[in-house]
Design a protein around this nucleic acid. Sequence first.
DNA 1: GGTAGCCGTGTGAACGTTCACATACATCTT
DNA 2: AAGATGTATGTGAACGTTCACACGGCTACC
Lengths: 356, 356
Amino acid sequence: MASRASVTIEHVAQAAGVSRQTVSRVINKGPNVKPEVRERVEAAIAALGYVPNLSARRMGGGKSYLILAVNDRQRTIENWRAGRGNDWVDQMLHGGITECEKHGYHLIFELIDTDPATAPRQLSNAIAALRPDGVILTPPHSDNEELPVLLAERGIPCARIGRRPGTQFIDVFMDEEEAAAEITARLIALGHMRLAFIAGSPEYGNSTKRLAGFSRALAASGLGEAAGCVAKGNFRFADAAQEIERLLTRADPPTALIAENDEMAFAAMHVADRLGLEVPQQLSIASFEDTPGVRFSVPPLTAIRQPTAEMIAAACSQLIAASAGGPAHGSIKLPYRLVERATTGPAPAPAKRKTG
Amino acid sequence: MASRASVTIEHVAQAAGVSRQTVSRVINKGPNVKPEVRERVEAAIAALGYVPNLSARRMGGGKSYLILAVNDRQRTIENWRAGRGNDWVDQMLHGGITECEKHGYHLIFELIDTDPATAPRQLSNAIAALRPDGVILTPPHSDNEELPVLLAERGIPCARIGRRPGTQFIDVFMDEEEAAAEITARLIALGHMRLAFIAGSPEYGNSTKRLAGFSRALAASGLGEAAGCVAKGNFRFADAAQEIERLLTRADPPTALIAENDEMAFAAMHVADRLGLEVPQQLSIASFEDTPGVRFSVPPLTAIRQPTAEMIAAACSQLIAASAGGPAHGSIKLPYRLVERATTGPAPAPAKRKTG
DNA sequence: GGTAGCCGTGTGAACGTTCACATACATCTT
DNA sequence: AAGATGTATGTGAACGTTCACACGGCTACC
């Protein structure tokens, strides 16, 4: 057991009969330490229960062993307020903490305004206070051009999540366009000839990519773009519900809906229920976000499983490597998965289709 | 805009024509600074974009401006792995980050093994590395007697969540027994005469308290304890489903179920569906955990809304006060709320009751 | 009118670590 | 055998802040 006062590197040095620096070399796995001495030091560390003080390490010019993950403040807080969970945050913690722990790092999570006028200052303040070894930018911050530059100026490696990869920073992403194209193609293969894409917000770069995938699949199928329509749901239940109702009650309604997030997919379910449309017999619904709510709802929804935790874990891993002298740029593409559950099925037979 | 190299207190001091210490007094809101000088320093801080370095502050013997929240590693990771969300984690972040931000603090979230043999060492390592100004212990760590003592020895204030309050530490809690009694009484008032409590695990102290409330309400109602039965669901879907099925298929099945968490409540819904029991017409189901899944499921469940975010926020607030010289003990009781939704209703008429 | 006390400010040291450099010894080269 | 190279270790300074204390000026009291 450690004694009351904190154990410092000096105590370990004395116990092992070496100097501070040698102990430092051992804990940082540096070269040029005799195996015998290394063992002696390690024994002393274990005996005294020594754990290096992170603040002091940072002060000494070393690493802070902190990875800062920044999230969209408005959306996160809105989700909290509304009593909806933040599955994204949960997944992020999953990947981030798990990976950081492996390397003796700690993940620290902060909220930053999306407003481009204030975001740089907020990030600047956070890094000035925390001095993290790396920063993870999540959507929509990952689409901000100013933030990575600001970090680069201060020599802090930066990883962007879910962004079309560039060459200057670490980009971790999945192929959003491909995923959108795949789910669209799958619905077309099921016989659907009129499809709708319930879009989030153009503020999120991913929205644009997914829409492109939707259009591409329509074109590739031979149905042509006219077979698809787009509704703006703004990622929100109420907005989406209104648009979806408009879509489903018009003359030639779509038989398949692809919603960009779970909330809008639930809105679709809700509207279908209200209009007496059976899912999936009369209407297929797919979500682009595979949250617990989506998985465990009744019926469970077909969805794209985004590798959120994996992306954050990869970002942490890259950032940690970068802070140890590795490259501070590169791109990692992670696979998504289309999970077909109970809300998608063959298109209704044209004859039986209800109109109105 | 801040310049490339980091701005230190010394730069501010020079710009304002004062000494380090005076700047320090200003940023720490210390007394004995002329209003005129204070203004000058504040202007310099704003002009240079100065933000104190947390590591240096800690090294100087000051605060770390870090609150450490520790969670149950096994359960959290199991939830992540299973693809269920961790609403608890999300709520915790909600309360914690929001409150910490207000005071210029940062919340840092760590997982610690529940095993009493390793927990103290893990906590010890975490605080040696991080040197937080306060630690929040969540269930079941809040029931561990050793952890708060360890923290007290190192002079770190500690807040326990959801624990019967003591006198030595900061305890933030809701009345679990009362909540269990209330929901039980409510179901009895709806005419239910045979009730079941789907218990989690005695490892969680709250389980015991809730069970006590359940028994108390039964006794108080005049029905007597014989009207209630207890199933051990271990907080898990599969375990709960099995026990619930056993309960519902026996000779004289309960007409109302109270599950200690959402997962077990969903298990109850699942079993009811399988057995062809209509909810709430033939069976009432209530959850003791009001997660987004519970709120947005179809039908939405009746549940106890625990003030999780509020408890963490209160804990942060108390810890921050304690680290500023306030009392490091005290207890705060926060109100829960019984939210009646669509899964509870009047007991089925005795005549119509199906048996088997 | 001296001295006790408070107010406002500054100075040196300390926190625990790493960095840059210095040193001692061993090994290889010519 | 002398120098060059490399390995293993130690020493002083630095990081940016706060703490403890010192100091000068002002007020107040007897």
